[in-house]
Write a protein that binds this DNA or RNA. Structure first.
Lengths: 196, 196
DNA sequence: GTCTATAAGGTGATAGAC
DNA sequence: GTCTATCACCTTATAGAC
């Protein structure tokens, strides 16, 4: 017979994070109450405070976890000599990583304004580090004469905006596979930075 | 002597809309209370209901107004024969229109999930109409052999995502003028769709 | 670790005086 | 058209029983 009370520390923690991720992505941080999260987990609201000191820290922790996973996975990519190869690796990584985590990506972009100043600064720092990784590649491409862009920093942001834009319309149940999508965006990325 | 009560119908209505626009953009619809909006306007909360039946309608009205202004202004653009000229006109219009209305743009992208289903469908319809205008240009460019893109619909969304991405980092007090920015994005747009 | 109960305060929206 | 007062409800977070 299933216990409805007692010790569940091993599973409740992750369940809280998953429920919060889903609900924050769907309705927005400010529109989701601790009671709703608790309801989705199957506990009472008070029990959530065994896993987070407050709602704000829960949001921050989700965003920080996402950004650190993004940076770690990016750092594990091979670093080819050829800047165009490096750009292709970055582009395919970006598409696949983002498609696999739509809720976390949504939150990382939409909930920045709901972070307290210190938390915002930390997430901004991580986001900047990711941008810098792409900018390094583009700068190397310009230096090697295989890229033609008007401004390295703006082109960096433009590429990331274009690639991340896939999240606003792609549905996993469509006809396009993630690989086909990455192919499509790679050809546009290449053209955009003059690396055809 | 200034009256603190009485008839102000001519000015309070617009002030309510402006205050709501600013506050929704800064903190998010769900995080802003009617009392906060009233405070920004300089009235009590109850007075707001002379100008909107409820909070949801206020949000919808702001988004609808923005999207209709966007479509109207777009429709007033010249329609040159040359698809590349048409694309350049669209691109420069998009940058300037968006830079001039950062709060409205922010709301139109971020608050979609806070719309009730019927309201959401209407905003989606308007957004789709705007996308279609660009897609028509790109399709004409492909037909004329002056554009080279892998998929017209995806390229349409990619161009809009890239251009709208300027909103996440551009600050009016920076060194870059809107015209210089539009130049920069035009060269990237051109390259992206193979219309160099 | 989870529960119930509660504190302290905010929410959207309305009624009726002026 | 705006005010004050109010309704009915929801909010985050905590305290103490089990």
């Amino acid at each position: 017979m299933a216990r409805t009370t007692g010790s569940h520390c091993d599973i409740t923690g992750p369940k809280v994070r998953r429920a919060a991720l889903t609900l924050f992505a769907r309705h927005g941080y400010a529109a989701v109450s601790m009671r709703q999260i608790a309801g989705a987990v199957g506990v009472q609201a008070g029990a959530l405070y065994n896993y987070t000191p407050d709602k704000q820290t829960l949001l921050f922790s989700l965003m920080q976890g996402h950004m650190e996973a993004l940076l770690t996975a990016r750092a594990d990519l091979p670093s080819p000599e050829d800047p165009v190869e490096g750009l292709e690796g970055f582009e395919r990584f970006h598409i696949h990583f983002h498609l696999a985590r739509p809720d976390a990506v949504f939150i990382a972009y939409m909930e920045l304004r709901n972070l307290e100043p210190g938390n915002f600064a930390e997430i901004e720092r991580l986001r900047r580090a990711y941008e810098d990784a792409l900018e390094d590649i583009l700068r190397a491409g310009v230096a090697a004469g295989v890229c033609d862009i008007p401004d390295t920093r703006i082109a960096t942001r433009a590429v990331i905006a274009m690639l991340t834009g896939v999240m606003t319309w792609y549905r996993a149940d469509g006809l396009l596979t993630p690989d086909a999508l990455a192919d499509c965006y790679w050809s546009m990325t290449q053209a955009m930075v003059g690396a055809g």
